[in-house]
Nucleic acid binder design. Structure first.
Lengths: 228, 228
DNA sequence: TCAACTCGTGAAGATTCTGTGCAGATCAGT
DNA sequence: ACTGATCTGCACAGAATCTTCACGAGTTGA
């Protein structure tokens, strides 16, 4: 992220002091920032500047934030961070319905705004990445069955063939316990087999790669995948 | 994409609010959308409207999403985007399993749905292009299936007939792992063949021409083309 | 608490798989 | 038929992976 080109953020806020404060902080964080002070200006600037994210105040002259949100989302999907004067439930619900992805209630800390913006951008990055493949997500774990690849919090993890098959078998019913016999049948194709430590060994190997806590041992029964 | 005729999408979802929300958004994205609210209606509309893609909720009145999927796939192969209520359940099996489907877990972001739909359609486009005569780009690799020519970063690479067929077979599903058996069946037309090093030899030759790193070995499974 | 049972672990040997060089077979064009 | 290009698949080495075993740690139920 340090070497990638700067993200552009459109800040839409009619209050000059707040607008400038947000802008300054985001620039300090390394973002490109363009500013708009009303609805029509926001929609126009959105088309002109192609921002990666929009910070949008609900209360605006011209038409309100929801309308702006609708219009820019109609142009192109973009993550929107709504800013509301009070935590009015209705406003928030409408905003989320119109396509806002997150919202913040005034007064807010700049640090929180920055943190949420970064989180939102990360989320979208992952969504775009995900769109390219047929991956399944379970907590921080992402499994692409076709490519036989696995990621843990964005970092790819190398699994052997057996480890991968074992994971997929467990992931097919997250949280559900599978007996060793069931696993030996489904993963190894040894129906009726038992009395071997083979499953345990591979569970150990799998745990060492995706985190011990993600495979729960159910004493006397078997193993289950945790969605964390 | 701007000049091509609009793609038609069939949205199958019994919840009116969600159905309409998806429909509205997809129409805003420029798709033609037809709506169905239950299994029988979906199957009938599928035949009548010839959609390019189906968005399908698992939970449906009549018969469930899997059944609908089976019936429409029986009529004509079509990309299906499944929507599941929660990511537990054996529903994930469908996502992990073989089918040509992608899936999404509720609640989902409209943007993500749109991104994945576009990705699915691109995948299909690519397969069609590969079968036809237009050139496809995969990372720095450009493949013109009609002319049977390949370029790597603008420089043409000479491939033998077998190498080319092998590349096209791998390129039809970039990133996806294909077994040697599958390759022997599809490229060599020897269904059921195995126990030979023929595939390996041609992979070696292909690698020497397009770069070793572009063909990923999946130990114990097969090979996959990387899009780099 | 204690015995009985179950599970985790590390290591080692066995097994399987892949990369590679090479040679004979096959093919296409002359 | 000749020649050069291509294809096939074997043999081998090295790498990767799998399985099993022994034993200590952990868990359960009486």
């Amino acid at each position: 992220m340090s070497t990638s080109p700067a993200r552009t953020i459109l800040v839409v806020e009619d209050e000059p002091v707040i607008n400038q404060a947000i802008t300054d902080r985001l620039r300090a964080e390394g973002f490109e920032v363009v500013q708009a002070w009303d609805g029509p200006g926001a929609v126009e600037l959105f088309g002109a500047s192609s921002p990666d994210l929009v910070v949008l105040d609900i209360m605006l002259p011209g038409y309100d934030g929801h309308e702006v949100c609708r219009r820019i989302q109609a142009q192109r999907p973009v993550p929107v961070m709504m800013v509301t004067a009070r935590d009015d439930e209705a406003d928030i619900l409408v905003g989320l319905g119109v396509g806002a992805d997150d919202y913040l209630t005034k007064p807010f800390r700049m640090r929180e705004l920055v943190a949420r913006i970064n989180a939102l951008l990360r989320r979208v990055d992952r969504a775009v990445e995900l769109a390219g493949s047929r991956a399944v997500e379970l907590g921080r774990l992402r499994i692409d069955a076709g490519a036989r690849r696995v990621w843990l919090s964005e970092v790819e993890v190398h699994l052997t063939a057996t480890e991968f098959d074992l994971l997929v078998c467990l992931a097919a019913t997250p949280g559900q316990v599978l007996t060793r016999e069931k696993l030996l049948a489904d993963v190894w194709g040894w129906p009726g087999a038992s009395g071997t430590r083979t499953v345990d060994s591979h569970v150990k190997a799998l745990r060492s790669k995706i985190g011990t806590e993600r495979v729960r041992t159910v004493h006397g029964v078997g193993y289950a995948l945790e969605t964390i």
